[in-house]
Nucleic acid binder design. Structure first.
Lengths: 112, 112
DNA sequence: TTCAATAGTTCAATATTCTTGAACTATTGA
DNA sequence: TCAATAGTTCAAGAATATTGAACTATTGAA
């Protein structure tokens, strides 16, 4: 694709950005799948929701630029992975607490 | 004031709502002050930022309806307190992780 | 090679949400 | 009774989000 992906260095990743990115149920669901799978996933697979692809693309971009995921082009697809280790170092316990809380919430209705 | 305050029961408080509420730097700053003081604080004191009062009122309402704070009228003012214990029970470790991460971020520029 | 299919991205327009000035309300103290 | 205080509410303009349509890059097959 035309422009290369933007991945902020971990020191530029802000708490607000992270919270904002994960405050959206679709993005939280995507991030959960990426952390859950341990490895990489392409966009449409990681998104367990039937949103238009332009919307999905937007969500992935936001997750990426918030510092939550790393994306890389691979053939015709883009593979994504959660930046768990870096995040854990910058925001200790945060991702874990969010994922745990999210697990406990069936109310989301979108996750899984 | 006309309409009474709305405080959702803790079981109706959603993770997304909490994340969204705290994704705003002003609201995070307000919440931090409320947790930091341990007790109650009126709105203008809890808000360490010089926003118009209509905006502040909106932020307090959002924090309240997201389940993060409890507000009560006392004379001419409204006193607020963080719902820490309830939140801890529903979302273990979450508030603590956010506050810790927030402490570590001087980049916010608004907190304290 | 060419061509169609795949997997996203980008753009632009509409829809939704936020911010804030101005007017309003409730309480207090003089 | 009145002014001051501390917020709330409303409405309008500003800022963001969502999404259909057009576009791009890569692959695999003919």
């Amino acid at each position: 694709m035309a422009r290369p992906f933007v991945h902020p260095p971990i020191e530029d990743v802000s708490l607000e950005g992270v919270l904002y990115a994960l405050a959206d149920p679709h993005r939280l669901a995507i991030f959960r799948r990426l952390t859950g799978c341990g490895g990489t996933m392409n966009c449409s697979t990681a998104a367990p929701c039937d949103l238009p692809k332009s919307t999905l693309s937007h969500h992935f971009k936001l997750l990426r630029e918030a510092g939550l995921i790393r994306s890389e082009k691979q053939g015709t697809q883009v593979v994504n992975m959660a930046r768990c280790d870096e995040l854990e170092q910058k925001f200790p316990g945060l991702v874990h607490a969010i994922l745990t809380s999210s697990d406990a919430c069936e109310s989301d209705g979108i996750n899984r």
